[in-house]
Design a protein around this nucleic acid. Sequence first.
DNA 1: AAGTGGTCTAGACCACGCA
DNA 2: GCGTGGTCTAGACCACTTC
Lengths: 226, 226
Amino acid sequence: MAGWEDIRAEVLARIRSRAWPLGALIPGEEALAQEFGVARATVNRALSELARVGVLERKRKAGTRVAALPVRKASFDIPVIRAEVEARGEIYGLRLLYLAIERPPVPVVARLGQDVGDMVHVQTLHLATGRGFVVEDRWLNRAVVPDPMPDFGAVSANEWLVAHVSYATGDISFAAEGAGGWEAEAMGVTDGAAVFVTERCTWAPEHPITWVRLVHAPGYRLSTLL
Amino acid sequence: MAGWEDIRAEVLARIRSRAWPLGALIPGEEALAQEFGVARATVNRALSELARVGVLERKRKAGTRVAALPVRKASFDIPVIRAEVEARGEIYGLRLLYLAIERPPVPVVARLGQDVGDMVHVQTLHLATGRGFVVEDRWLNRAVVPDPMPDFGAVSANEWLVAHVSYATGDISFAAEGAGGWEAEAMGVTDGAAVFVTERCTWAPEHPITWVRLVHAPGYRLSTLL
DNA sequence: AAGTGGTCTAGACCACGCA
DNA sequence: GCGTGGTCTAGACCACTTC
C-alpha cells in the first residue's frame, strides 16, 4: 500500500529526474490520487509536506509547481541554555552580574516596537563547568514579572520565561561581532575576539515580553541537519 | 465551526493558563474531539502541529503531554546567494578566484565522511554592487559534475547545484571566526576581523556531493521569525 | 493484551484567486 | 464563474509502546 511518504518519495524522484522540471506545473491532486491509487487526502498530505520544506509551491486555482529556485529550509532548536550546557556533559552554573529596573536604551525600545517605560534589566553569565559559556543581557517587560521578582540568580530569566510566560511570537538573529566592553570582560576574552551573538525579541499577542542578547564563548557553533 | 487552528489556539490557551501544566498529560484525541464537537482527525491535525513546533510531546499509548521544557524551534531559509543579494536591492556579481581538480585536505574528507579521491575545488567571490559579500570555498564530488564542466565563473556552483543536483540531505553550521588568509584578502577585510561563517555539507543517498564554506562580509546577519 | 496516536478512505464543502 | 488546494467528517485499520 502506498502511504503519504511513498507518494512524497515518488514526487521527489520525478523532480530529481527532471520528469517534472524546475518551475513546471505538476498534475492536480485528483489526478495524482487516481494515478497512485490512493485517496486525494493522502496526495495532499505528501504535497503539503513538500511545500512546507520549499520543494513545491502551491496556490489554489493556480495549482502546484516545482519551486524554481528550491529554497532549502532548515530548522533548529532554541534550547534553554542550561539544557544546552548539560547536553554537552558539562556542569551548568549561573552568575547574576547586574539587576535593575531602569529605562531601556533607544535601540532596545525600537526593537521591541513599543515603549513600556521602565523595564527589568538583567545581566547574567552562564557557566559551563566553571568557564564562561554565554553572557546574557536581557530587558524584561515589568508587566510579565510578578511583584516579588523571581530570583534570577537562581533560575535564569531564560528558563523562568519558558516556564511562566509560555508561547509568544518573536524574531531571532545571529551575527558575528568583535567582543568588547563588559561583555568581553565577563566572558574573559580579549577585546575584538570574534564571538557569536544571538539577539532575540519576543512578544505576547498585545505587548512586548523581552529583548535579549546572548554573547557566546569563542568557538561556539550553531548547527543543524538539513 | 471549529477548525484545526481554533483547536490549536484553545490548546495553547489551556497551556498558557496552566489549566494543563507543563509536563502534564492531556486528554486523548477521542475525548478532545467529543469535547470540541469535531472529528478526531481535526484534533489530530492541531496536536500534531503543536508537537512539530515543540509545544507538545506525543507518544503512542503513552498519550500527549505538554513539553516540560518547551524547546522553541525556529526555521530559516537557505537562499541562493544571488537571490539574497538581489533581495537587498543590490547588483549581484561573481568572480572566480580559483578552480582545480585536486585532493581535498583531510578535514574536508572527514566532514564528507567518505573519500572520493580528487574533487573539484572552486573558490569564488560573490559581490553585492561591487563590494565583497561572500567568499565561497567549495569542494565538489567529481561524480556529480558533468564532463564539460559548467562555467563556475558565470553560474555559481551554489546555483548550479540546486538546479541540477536537487534534493539531498546534509548539515549546516554557523560560527563566528576571525578573518584570515586568502579569505580575508579576497573579502578585503583586516586580519582578525569578526566574520560570520557558514559551513555546509550535503550528501546524495549514497555518496557525498559537496562541502562548502561561506565567509560573509562583516555585518552580515542571519535572522528569522520564531 | 490493550490503549493511544498515525494514517488512510470516500465523500463533501469551502475559500481563494484566476479569468 | 469555476478550478484548485485546504479542510472536515465518520469510520476503519494499523503501529507502536507500555502494561
